[in-house]
């Protein structure tokens, strides 16, 4: 157990910031889940709720940003506190973008729900589950300072990329077979692409967690001339 800050109000500000980030992460988790269910369960009202709910995610981004700036200005954080604040400033942007991707998927859902279903959706559901799990694991790693879990998120991004590619090829086949399906298949393709991007943001989160805990930057190994593991290529 690491000791706490002598100044209790500082301790409270830092833990308050951590709680808000987790709260925001929870909203994003629910948004991505709902947006994909809006497609698979053809639930337009659910899609609408994702769009409405994004306002709260955006509001929290601004609030957390302000909180970080306040601590930087008033507390001059150092060492692990400094790494925590800079991490928070970065992951809040990723989380907000992830919320936007959920909205994008919800919009595709609204479009798709106007017309009959085009293809089996279980791969899309699977991709959604994977993406959501990535976010959940990244947030867990953030809370527990678990570098191994963060690294697992970075490695698992390959699975998402592979599944996205499979969905892409399947949809391509459907479009080639029946050109009337192009509009709808494209909408699903976009949704799948958004999920894949969602996963990339989860990877960003995980990389920042490694930085926060260890103080080492694991982003862009190639630009530092290091050997690139396959999942980061």
């Amino acid at each position: 157990m690491t000791p706490t800050h002598t100044d209790k109000s500082y301790e409270a500000e830092l833990s308050g910031l951590r709680d808000r980030l987790l709260e925001m992460g929870g909203l994003v988790e629910r948004a991505i889940d709902a947006s994909v269910r809006a497609i698979t369960e053809r639930d337009t009202a659910l899609a609408q709720s994702v769009k409405t709910g994004d306002r709260e995610i955006n509001r929290m981004e601004v609030e957390i940003d302000n909180g970080c700036r306040r601590i930087l200005a008033l507390r001059q954080p150092a060492a692990s506190d400094l790494r925590f604040i800079t991490t928070a400033l970065k992951i809040v942007t990723d989380l907000e973008r992830m919320g936007d991707l959920a909205v994008n998927i919800a919009e595709r859902a609204m479009e798709l729900n106007q017309t009959p279903p085009v293809a089996p959706m279980h791969d899309l559901s699977k991709l959604a589950d994977l993406s959501e799990a990535q976010l959940k694991k990244a947030l867990d790693a953030f809370v527990t300072h678990d570098v191994e879990e963060a690294e697992e998120v970075m490695h698992r991004d390959d699975l998402l990329d592979a599944l996205y590619l499979k969905i892409f090829n399947d949809l391509l086949a459907i479009m080639m077979e029946d050109s009337r399906q192009i509009r709808r298949a494209t909408a699903i393709m976009f949704a799948a692409k958004h999920l894949e991007r969602f996963g990339d943001h989860a990877t960003n989160l995980a990389e920042m967690v490694v930085y926060m805990v260890r103080g080492t930057d694991v982003r862009h190994p190639r630009s530092r001339g290091e050997d690139v593991p396959p999942h980061q290529a």
């Binding site: 800050h5 100044d7 500082y10 692990s80």
Partner: peptide, 12 residues
């Protein structure tokens, strides 16, 4: 750890 605690203001 002792440096970390000192520069972050955790003075025991």
């Amino acid at each position: 750890q002792r440096t970390e605690d000192y520069v972050t203001g955790k003075f025991g």
